[in-house]
Design a protein around this nucleic acid. Structure first.
Length: 709
RNA sequence: GAGCCCAUAGCUCAGUGGUAGAGCGUUUCGUUGACAUCGAAAAGGUCGAUGGUUCAAAUCCAUCUGGGCUCACCA
C-alpha cells in the first residue's frame, strides 16, 4: 500500500469491478421489503454540476440498504429536457449564422437528436465518476419509445377523463423563444415603469401599458366605490388616439379604489385578470400584439371609412415593437392633450422568460391544458393521510400550498424537441382526435380523412412528471425473477431525493400524475436537499465565475472527498456553502482512513500488554454502529458523517491505535473494530473503503459493497 | 399583501430542553516506522435583541431587528 491514498489509481478499477460484478442490480426476493430510488434524470446533453453531485445522498441510502440486505434499486435515466435543450442548440445555430426556421421540423429534430447523442455519454460517465451505484442495466431516456408510449397513454386517459382539454386561454408567451409556457416558467421581476394617467372620455385612467388600450373592451370599477357607482352599466363615448369608441363600465370587486383613479380599463387579450373578467362579462378577446411581440393594427387598417389622420397613425404603429410603439403613443397622447400626468415612481412586477429574460406577453392561444384541481386535491389528500412525508417537514406545508394554488397547466410547447402531442385536428370539422400514440387515418367525429397532427410537443415536466412509474413499468428484470415486472415490486418507490427548488415543477407533478395514473403515490418520502453555493454563500453561476466543477474536484482530490464534503455537517433543506478547503480537508480524511488501514496491515500483532481497554472499545464501536444507523434511518446524513469523521480520526486513530501500541488493546479487537468502521464509512466514501478492504485479509472474497452492515 | 428559511468561535456551518461543537483559519511546540494530506497543546462564542414558559432554554412560545427565498390578477 502506498504511503498516501491515491484515488486516481483505484477509482476506475473499483467502479468497473462493482459494475461488472452486477452489484448494482437488486435481487428481487420474496418476503423482503425492497428499497428503491429513481434518480432525478439529469439533462441528457449537459455536464453535471455540483447540484447533481448532491445525489450522493441517494447513493448513501442505496448502499446502506444494499448492505442491510434489502433488495435495493437505484434507477438511472436521462431527460431530453425539451425547451432547455432546444434553447442551447438554437444558441449554437445562431452562432453559425442560422436559426431554427431555416430547417423543416424533422430535420431540426434530427439535428438536436444528434447533438444530444453526441453529449449523452458524458453525463452518465460523470455519474460513474462520482461512484454512484446506479443500476445501469435499467437505464432509460425520456424519449425511449416505450417511455413515450406510457406518456401517450396517460395523456389519452386524461383526455378521456376530461382532465385534458383544448382551449383558448391567455398563455405566457415568450416572443423571443417563440413558445408558450406554464405559469411556473415565468419569472417575475420588480421594475420601475412610468404609470400614465390619461383622459378616457369623462374619466381618467391609469395604466402602465397604454399600447394595449386600443383593444380595451370595457371599463371596470369597484362596486363599492361611491365615485363611480352611478356609472356602472352605462356606456360612454370616448375619444382616443384612433378616434371615437364606446365603452361600458362594469363592476369588479378586485379593482382597488386606491390605485390610480380607481377606474380600470379592461383588455381581455393581454391581461390575465382582464381575461377572466372578460369571460364573466362576455367581452371579446381582441389581441393587438402578435406572437413576434409586434403591434398588430391590421384589424383597424381593414376598416373602411376611417379618418385618414387616424389611419396614418395606425400605419405608423403597425408592426412596431411594443416598447417602441408605446413611446410613440405617449407622444401622441401629449399632442392630443390626453395625457394628464405621469407617475415616474411606479414600481410593479412584470413577468419575464426565466430563460432569456424577455418580457412575457400574455397572449390568447389555443393550447392543451391539464385540469389540475382534481389531481391536486387527490395529492393533498394523500399528503394529509401521511401516505407521503417530507424531509424536512416544513416542505409539506409548502407542497400543499403549491398544490392548492396551481392553475390549469399549459402542456403545449411550440418547439420540436420533445414528445409530439398525439392529437390530430380535423381540417373540416375542426374537432380533435386524440390517441394513445397510434396515428389515426380519419377524424373521430366526422370520419373525414383531412386531419393534421398538432405540431406542438409536451412540456418536459409532463413526461418527467411520470418518471417513477414510467421507468419502472418499462424496466423489466429477468423473466425468472420474482415479480419480473419492476413496477409490481418496487412501486411506490421509497424515497424521492432532489433539490427543493424543483418542488413545484417536478415533485408536485410527479405526485399528481403518479396518483392519477397508478392509484398510488410515486414515493413514500420526499427528501429535499439545499442548494450548493460558493464559500461566500453566493449562488454559483458562470457569469460570477465561482462555479466549482465537480469533475475537476474529483480529479484533484478524489470522489470520496467531494462526496463527504457535500454531506458532512449539512442538513436537509438548507443551502450550504462549499469551498475547496473543505474538499481538501476531506481528502485528508480519506488519507487518514487509508493510513489506518496501512497500519493495521503492516503492524500485525506486535504489541503485547494488559489489554485492559478491549471492552471499552467494543462498547464504543457498538454505540457508533447504533448511532450511525439511527442517523441514516432518520435522514440525518450530515450528522452520521460527523460522527464517523470524529470517531475515525479522534477516537480510533488518535486513541485506539496509540493504546494498541501500548498493548492496552488486542489486535483482534482493533482489527474487527476497523472492519466495522469501514462498513459504516462505505456508503459515504465507497472507493477508499473498498480499496482498503481489498488489501485486508478476509475470509470471503466478497467486496465491501455487499458486505453485511 | 401572505408564507417560509437563516442569524452559534475569524470564515463556513452542524447541534435543537440538562455544564457550548466540527471543518478551515490562527498561535506555540514536535524530523525516527500508519499518516507532515501528520501529531501534541492553545487562543477564540454572555449561541441576533427583548420578554415569557421551565428546577433548567442556543434549543419551546411571543415580539422585534437584520439577511435571504417563495408565492399573489395591483391595472
Amino acid at each position: 500500500m502506498d504511503k498516501t491514498y491515491n484515488p486516481k489509481s483505484v477509482e476506475e478499477k473499483i467502479y468497473q469491478m462493482w459494475e461488472s460484478g452486477n452489484y448494482f442490480s437488486p435481487r428481487k426476493t420474496r418476503g423482503k421489503l425492497p428499497f428503491s430510488i429513481v434518480l432525478p434524470p439529469p439533462n441528457a446533453n449537459a455536464d453535471l454540476h455540483l447540484g447533481h453531485a448532491m445525489y450522493v445522498i441517494e447513493d448513501i441510502m442505496i448502499r446502506y440498504h444494499r448492505m442491510k440486505g434489502d433488495p435495493s434499486l437505484w434507477l438511472p435515466g436521462a431527460d431530453h429536457a425539451g425547451f432547455e435543450t432546444q434553447y442551447v442548440f438554437e444558441k449554437q445555430l445562431v452562432k453559425e449564422g442560422k436559426n431554427r426556421f431555416d430547417y423543416p421540423r424533422e430535420e431540426l429534430y434530427q439535428m438536436i437528436w444528434d447533438f444530444v447523442q453526441k453529449n449523452r455519454g458524458t453525463m452518465e460517465n460523470q455519474l460513474r465518476r462520482l461512484g454512484f451505484s446506479l443500476d445501469w442495466s435499467r437505464n432509460t431516456f425520456t424519449l425511449d419509445p416505450n417511455i413515450v408510449e406510457i406518456v401517450y397513454k396517460t395523456f389519452k386517459k386524461l383526455y378521456d377523463d376530461g382532465l385534458v382539454y383544448r382551449g383558448t386561454r391567455l398563455v405566457n408567451y415568450c416572443t423571443r423563444d417563440g413558445t408558450g409556457f406554464s405559469d411556473l416558467e415565468v419569472k417575475y421581476v420588480e421594475r420601475n415603469d412610468p404609470l400614465y394617467y390619461m383622459k378616457y372620455g369623462p374619466f381618467t385612467i391609469a395604466t402602465a401599458r397604454p399600447e394595449t388600450k386600443f383593444r380595451d373592451t370595457a371599463l371596470a370599477v369597484n362596486p363599492k366605490d361611491k365615485r363611480y357607482k352611478d356609472a356602472i352599466g352605462k356606456t360612454y363615448d370616448i375619444t382616443g388616439l384612433l378616434g371615437p369608441v364606446k365603452m361600458t363600465v362594469i363592476p369588479d370587486p378586485h379593482v382597488d379604489p386606491a390605485f390610480g383613479t380607481g377606474i380600470m380599463k379592461v383588455t381581455p387579450a393581454h391581461d390575465p385578470h382582464d381575461f377572466e373578467l372578460g369571460q364573466k362579462f362576455n367581452l371579446p378577446v381582441t389581441p393587438i400584439i402578435n406572437f413576434r411581440g409586434r403591434m398588430d393594427f391590421s384589424w383597424f387598417l381593414a376598416k373602411k371609412d376611417v379618418d385618414p389622420k387616424y389611419r396614418a397613425r395606425a400605419e405608423i404603429y403597425h408592426g412596431k415593437k411594443v416598447a417602441e410603439a408605446r413611446a410613440l403613443m405617449v407622444e401622441d397622447l401629449k399632442k392630443d392633450g390626453l395625457l394628464v400626468k405621469v407617475d415616474e415612481q411606479y414600481i410593479h412586477r412584470i413577468g419575464t422568460c426565466y430563460k432569456c429574460g424577455t418580457i412575457i406577453e400574455p397572449l390568447p392561444m389555443e393550447q392543451w391544458f391539464v385540469k389540475v384541481k382534481p389531481l391536486a386535491d387527490a395529492s393533498i389528500e394523500a399528503i394529509k393521510k401521511k401516505k407521503l412525508s417530507f424531509v424536512p417537514k416544513r416542505f409539506e406545508k409548502r407542497a400543499i400550498q403549491w398544490l392548492t394554488d396551481f392553475h390549469d397547466w399549459n402542456i403545449s410547447r411550440q418547439i420540436v424537441w420533445g414528445i409530439r402531442i398525439p392529437a390530430w385536428k380535423c381540417l373540416d370539422c375542426k374537432e380533435w382526435t386524440v390517441t394513445a400514440g397510434s396515428t389515426p387515418t380519419t377524424c373521430s367525429k366526422c370520419k373525414n380523412n383531412h386531419i393534421e397532427q398538432d405540431t406542438d410537443t409536451f412540456d418536459t415536466w409532463f413526461s418527467s412528471g411520470q418518471w417513477p412509474f414510467a421507468t419502472l413499468r418499462v424496466a423489466q428484470g429477468k423473466p425468472s425473477d420474482f415479480r419480473s415486472n419492476d413496477f409490481d415490486y418496487f412501486y411506490p418507490t421509497s424515497v424521492m431525493e432532489t433539490g427543493y427548488d424543483i418542488l413545484p415543477w417536478w415533485v408536485c407533478r410527479m405526485i399528481m400524475l403518479g396518483i392519477y395514473a397508478t392509484g398510488d403515490v410515486p414515493f413514500h418520502t420526499v427528501y429535499l436537499h439545499g442548494l450548493v453555493r460558493d464559500s461566500k454563500g453566493q449562488k454559483m453561476s458562470k457569469s460570477r465565475g465561482n462555479v466549482i466543477n465537480p469533475l475537476k474536484m474529483i480529479d484533484q482530490y478524489g470522489a470520496d472527498s467531494l462526496r463527504m464534503s457535500l454531506v458532512y455537517g449539512t442538513a436537509s433543506g438548507n443551502d450550504q456553502s462549499l469551498s475547496e478547503d473543505k474538499i481538501r480537508g476531506m481528502r485528508n480524511f480519506a488519507n487518514k482512513v487509508w493510513n489506518i488501514g496501512r497500519f493495521i496491515m503492516s503492524d500485525t500483532n506486535k504489541f503485547k500488554g494488559t489489554e485492559t481497554k478491549n471492552n471499552e472499545v467494543r462498547k464504543k464501536v457498538a454505540t457508533l454502529v447504533k448511532t450511525v444507523t439511527k442517523k441514516i434511518d432518520s435522514y440525518q446524513f450530515g450528522q452520521a458523517a460527523q460522527w464517523l469523521y470524529e470517531f475515525t480520526w479522534h477516537t480510533f486513530a488518535d486513541s485506539y491505535i496509540e493504546d494498541y501500541k501500548k498493548g492496552e488493546i488486542s489486535y483482534a479487537i482493533l482489527f474487527n473494530s476497523f472492519i466495522a468502521l469501514l462498513k459504516l464509512l462505505h456508503p459515504f466514501m465507497p472507493f477508499v473503503t473498498e480499496a482498503i478492504w481489498s488489501h485486508l485479509p478476509q475470509k470471503t472474497n466478497e467486496p465491501l459493497i455487499i458486505s453485511h452492515w
